[in-house]
């Protein structure tokens, strides 16, 4: 059984100016353990697709099963629980809470999972160690670089051991070297068994995925498998060409 099973999924918006079909009957399977890039220009339907897959929105037609659960039949609370237990989100703008430290940011999904404070702290520190930020656990977002903030966000996405990591333009706000680091981290996590879906308009980012799904005008126009570029190797090349101090710990 695929992790994500999408059949004839559509999303139509009723606007004052008429009906707009953002997604028009998409069928797609994603297996556990894949690293998929969802590509397309703006307005292609890739964001709508991601919102539906991320259980943030409901389809107007078709079916979506996430890890066996029929998502379109779930209530608002059911969707919230699914987002909490099975999904981890990474955003372009990191979306960290500015008032609390990295550790508390990572704890947030566990707060809504109803875990006690001690377990949360323990698991949050583990997740931060996994993204290489054990030393920065008690820094506030303002005291961290962009790449470090995105690592905190990834740690937050991972902390409830989700079935799927959904990353929406995760490197969009980062310089090219930091972007490579984040992509390398996704590749590492994928090798450890985490299923990753990267939504991007950037072909350079998509090169690092084993599978690329292209959207245009609300439809899938291509679904290709490729040999992914190795972000770690690219980092090594990058650093030997222009030596730079390590941006991240």
């Amino acid at each position: 059984m695929p992790l994500i099973e999408v059949r004839d999924l559509s999303r139509v918006y009723d606007l004052d100016s008429g009906r707009v079909t953002a997604l028009g009957g998409v069928s797609l399977d994603i297996e556990a353990g894949e690293l998929v890039a969802v590509m397309g220009p703006s307005g292609s339907g890739k964001s709508t697709f991601m919102n539906l897959v991320g259980c943030l929105d409901r389809p107007t037609g078709g079916h979506y099963r996430l890890d066996g659960a029929a998502v379109e039949t779930l209530s608002g609370d059911g969707l919230a629980e699914l987002r909490n237990r099975k999904l981890g989100f990474v955003f372009q703008q990191f979306n960290l809470l500015p008032r609390v430290d990295a550790c508390a940011n990572v704890e947030l999904p566990m707060v809504y999972a109803g875990l006690d404070g001690k377990t949360r702290r323990e698991r949050a520190l583990n997740a931060l160690a996994r993204v290489g930020l054990a030393e920065r656990a008690h820094h506030r977002p303002m005291q961290l670089s962009g790449g470090q903030q995105q690592r905190v966000a990834i740690a937050r996405a991972l902390v409830n051991q989700p079935r799927l990591l959904l990353a929406d333009e995760p490197t969009g706000a980062l310089d090219s070297r930091t972007a490579l680091e984040i992509l390398a981290l996704f590749q590492d996590l994928n090798r450890e068994g985490v299923t990753v879906v990267l939504v991007t308009h950037d072909a350079e980012v998509a090169r690092h995925a084993r599978r690329v799904v292209r959207f245009r005008d609300g439809h899938v126009i291509a679904d290709i498998r490729q040999e992914p570029a190795d972000a770690r190797a690219a980092l090594a090349v990058h650093d030997s060409a222009a030596p730079m101090p390590e941006a991240a710990e």
């Binding site: 608002g76 919230a80 629980e81 987002r83 237990r85 989100f89 979306n95 947030l108 999904p109």
Partner: peptide, 16 residues
């Protein structure tokens, strides 16, 4: 608003 959006995304229910 963004904080609320984030909280909802990581699994907060409406009543939370």
């Amino acid at each position: 608003t963004r904080e609320i959006g984030l909280r909802l995304a990581v699994g907060a229910r409406q009543r939370d």
